[in-house]
Structure formats: C-alpha cells, structure tokens
Design a protein around this nucleic acid. Structure first.
Lengths: 349, 349
DNA sequence: CATTTGTGTTAAAACGGTGGCATGAAAATT
DNA sequence: AATTTTCATGCCACCGTTTTAACACAAATG
C-alpha cells in the first residue's frame, strides 16, 4: 500500500467514498458516520497521509500560523535578550502548538521593511512583536500594520494611543517590589541606577514603582541618589563610581537591569564596600548570570511561561475575532544573597 | 485606490492585461515586456499586493519554508543549549531569508511524533534537526524520515550508516587544539574529564583529538588521568575531587564541556590549587558564562554563523536537488586566562 | 508574396482541499 | 400509507496562483 504523495482523493477511492467525505472524516465532522470515519482515518494513517496545508489554507483563507518577529537589541557583542527570549520562544511555540498554530520566526533588522508582508501573503494569521525596543521609532510601522488590518500583539508596556494590543510585564510593580524589599531590610538611602524617562517606558515604570514604595514608606525620594545609565555592566560600574566620588552615602541600590547591577556590585567591591554588608543590591530581569555572580543577585523576574502563553492566547483571540485588551503580568522578586537579611523576612526554620 | 484583499486578477483588470501576465510580471519573467512589467509592478505596490503563499505553494508544490526542530535537553532547571542555539537560530533565519525561505520553529518534546508531518503536509520543504542528543534513540525516527523521502539535515557529527546528511563541528579537531594548547604551554600530565564513549559521538571525538595530540607530542595517554563525567558543574567538581583524593598528579585539564570545566575550577580552588598556576584548564563550547568566571575560561568555540549558514545551505541544496555530502566545520580555540602563559605563545609586543 | 521565426499575451487546466446545496435512504411523524 | 424529518453522503463551485499550449502580430526569410 504505497502511494507516493497521497491526496484525499486517493483515500476516497480506496475507501469507496467521495473525496468530500474524506475531508470531513479527517476533521472529525459529526456529519460522517463513526464507522466510515474510522475506516477513512485508518486508511489515511496507513498511507501516511497528511492534509496539504497550502490547499486547505487557500480554501479557508487562513494558515494556522503565527509569525514571531524578534528585534534583537544587539549592543556590539552582547545579546541582551538571550535567555528570557529563549524561554519565551519555547513557551510561545508550545502554547501555539496547543492551539493548533505553527510559529514562523524571523529575527529582523530594525531597518527592514518587515511585517507588512506576513499577513497579506497569508503566510501568517497574525504577528507577535518581541524585543521591540524604542517604541517611538516604530510608531509609523505600527500605524501601517493597523491600517492594513493586520492582527498583531506587542510584547511590552501599555503605551497610550499606540495602535494594537500589548502584553507585558508590570514594571511598576517590579520596581515597587524591589524597593519594598530593600526598605523591609531597613535600608533607607536607596540609590536608583537606570534609564529614567527617555525612550523607555519600561524603565520609567520601574522607577515609578521604586518611587511609590519610598513614598509609601515615608522615605524621601532624593534626586541625588538617582544616576542615569543604559543597560551595560560598564555603565553600572561608572554610575556607582560617580556616587562614591560624590561622597553620596547610600545603603541600598536598585538597578533597572541585572547587567547594571552586576557592574555596580563590581564597582562596590573595587571600592571596599561589601555587598550585602554595606549596600544591598537588587537587579531586574533575572538573567542567567544573575544566579552565578558573587554574591548571587536578588532580582525581579518575569515569568516566561505566563508571558509566552499570554501573548499567544491574546493573538489567537484577535485572530478568532474575540475582543482582547492589553494586559500586564506581575513580575516576581527572586531573593538571593545580594541583599542579606533573609532571616529578618522569614521566621527562623 | 483601495481594494481590501487584492488578487493578481484585480491587478490584471487595473492594468488592462491578463492575470497570467501579472503573475509573470511579478516574478520578473523575461517573457513580459519591460514597460508592461514596470506598470504592473507599480500597480501591485500601489495596492499593497503580496502573492498569496498558499495559492502559489499549492500550485508549485513547495512552500519555501524550512522547519527547524529543536530538541531541548533541559536538565531540570538548566537549559544547556541556550546561547549557542540562540545564535544558531539567528543565523539560520538570516541565511534562510537570504535564500528566500521562511523558518518554522518547533521546540519538540523528545517523545513527540514530530517530523513526519512537516513535509508531507507541505508546510515545509525540509527539516533541520538541532540539539539532537542521543542519536541511537532516534534512529528509528530518522529511518522513517528517510523512507518518506523527507529532506532533512542534522546538526551533529557524522555517524556511520545514519540516514540523511549531517553538518557538525569537528570535535576531534577541537579536542586536538585544546590539548595542543596545553602541551605548548609545557603541561605534560593533562587530565581529561568528560563522557568518553557511550551515547555521545561528539564527546568521543573530543577525547580522540586530545589523545592524538598527546600521541603526536610523545606524551603518554594515561588512563588514570581520565575521569568520566556528564555535562554538569557538579560532576566536574566531583571528578576533580576524585583525582585529588586519589593523589593523582596533574598540571593540565581538558574538560569536554564548559560546565564541567567551571565545576572543576571550583574544585581546584576549594582544594588550594591555583588556576592557571598549578593547573591549566581548557573547556569546550564557549558558553556565555565562560568569559565571566574567574579566571576567564579558555575554551573551544563553535562558530554559530558558519554553522547556521552551513546547515541552511546544505538543506536548501537537498531541497533543490543538488548532491550534498555531510560536512564538519572547524572549531576555534579562544584563549583567555585559565591557562596562563600567553607570553610563551606569542612574541612579546 | 508566401512562409517561417520570434515575441508578447491570453485562455484554460491544473494544484488539493472545503463547504453549501442537493440527494436518497432510513427513521419518525402524521 | 403518506408525509415529513433526520442522517449520511455525493456533487460541484471556489480559493489564487503557475504554467502549458495556443494565438495573434510583426519581422525576417525564401
């Protein structure tokens, strides 16, 4: 029983039934009698038959595929996204598979004229935009997407008036948790190192959370404790050096990314400050390195499984015409060694 | 000029020409007069028209898509592949795009009945199998793939009698380079820690390269210096501890993975041995952590760009019917601090 | 001038499914 | 027994391309 490229018609002939019935039987239509269905499915399996996706897609006008567009913020040698996005990819493909969708991946150049083609060519039914970076720059492209009625969802914060739907991490809450943790440990002069406003709503939100925690605790939010720095070890190092040279006293430090935190810790060590003895440090991201530095870094983690499944669920919702709103997921503080004082937070056991 | 979902027929009507001519014009067929072609392409762009991939694929019987099947060797929490595979994914998508192919990604469960469907359903024209792990286990699946005339290429070593084509890293050469580096630094009692034979041809090859280097240098290849260990920090630690407890003298160490090397270095430090003073250490993989441990690890690196483009080029070759042979790419030794004695290798500058 | 050779275009036949409608038989209702 | 309803299946149009074969028409050839 060998047919080179079996079609549903071949199966129909073998089963002594019409081709349409085969099509229905294979999709478990209740319209076809159970025993016929079983017979047909048996023959299909026997022949190693699989539905031709092009033909089916042509007829039904959808591909059961979503496109994942990744924008890699490669800063010279350092690939910033790495493990989190890897985990995200993992969860996205799993979630998509569970809903019957394939995932098309494209690592885009920021300059490319990407995106417009995917849905128009019926290659994909919708898009996930990941690693989007500086939103303002892409505004024009998002508008074009929306104008073409492309279904897409953005991994990122909720930005006012931005077209489309987002799914992101509640950075404000993350910043709040980080600062609160430091406050609970008795720290009162907590420095903030990171981008604050320009270009990055995520980092702005992290700062806002930090500020809210201080406010609620009745601790002054001192501008002298805030040092701007982009996401790199070097700039974290420089920022701490600046604080120390200024003679600015501080006993806690919240860095808006792990890389900054790691650079900061190195700067503290190089200048005779102990972590967590003199200064407690909290980062953001939980990158893989975070658990391996000394002392292991306490940081705010985003759950990739929730993120991946959330993105897919929302996109499929859009595709299938359900009303979908932008949403944020809660990040989680991972307590390691860089803050000390675990005992003060937990009952001795 | 707005048509909701323009087809080639719409363009034909607008251009006052037949639909067939539009099809040809859009694919730059020389059969259509340059001025007609230009006019048609202008209208297509105007309408934001893109060829319906399902229809085109149905007609031509190929999808211009390759499927990337990733098998994640997740050992509990640790995702081993991470950055190398991430870089690979990056290069694969780029190389594929350059040749006009899309990439469908699937992170498979090892138990899944994957693969058979991809080509049979015309979702993909061929498969790349990545992170394949223990080959023997999958032998049956590979046979099934080959029997179904599926085009596929495996990232991994060349295994005798294995169906299909492979593209991999020359692990033997990597092991040889590692051992030679240690020998060039004057080390003579070089331990090997890693899997040797069972299940992993890659690791076997690394050992073989190590053995060849020793042989060529006239250094005895002592079985007492060889400790088996699977890929984990813990087992690398344990292996070194065993050597030390045995009282086995050694001044060099080649670990078949970076994780093992990192565990080994920690064990050495814990037992009062200095790296690279007492023992020079070389790893394999160049995982991201390698550059960040202290001392920074000298290791053997595989070039993800060569790997990604090589895999894609070979697969596309198979798809397009060219004769393709299995190939290995050369890895490269990255010299950092864990061996010391750079000066001895390079002329003083 | 009749005939061959190109050249640019069109008409029409696939490609392999899906889904609306028609159909005939069996079951249920009058 | 005649009619309606239900069920299972068949028929056929259609999705939007690519590609073969046919066809005008012009230029080149005998």
């Amino acid at each position: 029983m060998k047919i080179e490229n079996p079609t549903s018609r071949d199966i129909a002939d073998l089963a002594g039934v019409s081709q349409a019935t085969v099509s229905r039987a294979l999709r478990n239509s209740p319209q076809v009698r159970p025993e016929t269905r079983a017979r047909i499915q048996g023959i299909a399996k026997e022949l190693n038959y699989f539905v031709n996706r092009n033909a089916a897609g042509l007829r039904t006008q959808h591909s059961n595929t979503i496109a994942l567009l990744l924008f890699d913020e490669t800063d010279g040698t350092d690939k910033k996204m790495n493990l989190f996005f890897w985990a995200m990819l993992d969860n996205i493909t799993r979630a998509a598979a569970k809903l019957g969708y394939d995932v098309l991946v494209s690592l885009q150049q920021l300059t490319d004229d990407w995106h417009m083609e995917y849905q128009a060519s019926h290659r994909a039914d919708g898009l996930i935009l990941l690693g989007y970076g500086d939103y303002a720059e892409y505004r024009e492209k998002l508008d074009a997407l929306a104008a073409a009625h492309t279904r897409f969802i953005i991994w990122g914060p909720i930005v006012k008036d931005q077209p489309g739907r987002s799914f992101g991490c509640d950075n404000e809450s993350g910043g709040y948790q980080a600062a609160n943790h430091l406050l609970a440990l008795g720290r009162r002069r907590i420095a903030y190192i990171g981008r604050k406003r320009r270009g990055s709503p995520e980092h702005a939100a992290r700062y806002d959370g930090y500020a809210r925690a201080l406010l609620e605790a009745g601790v002054e939010c001192d501008d002298k404790l805030r040092v701007p720095a982009d996401n790199s070890e070097r700039l974290g190092y420089a920022a701490v050096k600046e604080l120390l040279e200024r003679g600015q006293p501080f006993d806690g430090l919240f860095a808006s990314t792990d890389l900054i935190a790691i650079g900061a810790m190195r700067a503290l060590a190089d200048n005779g400050k102990t972590v967590p003895g003199d200064v407690s440090v909290v980062g953001f991201d939980d990158m893989p390195l975070a658990a391996h530095v000394t002392p292991a870094l306490t940081t705010v983690q985003q759950n990739a499984e929730i993120a991946g499944t959330g993105l897919v669920a929302n996109l499929v919702g859009l595709i299938e015409g359900r009303p979908i709103e932008s949403r944020l997921m809660a990040p989680k503080l991972i307590v390691r060694d860089s803050c000390g004082g675990k005992a003060r937070l937990m009952p001795a056991g």
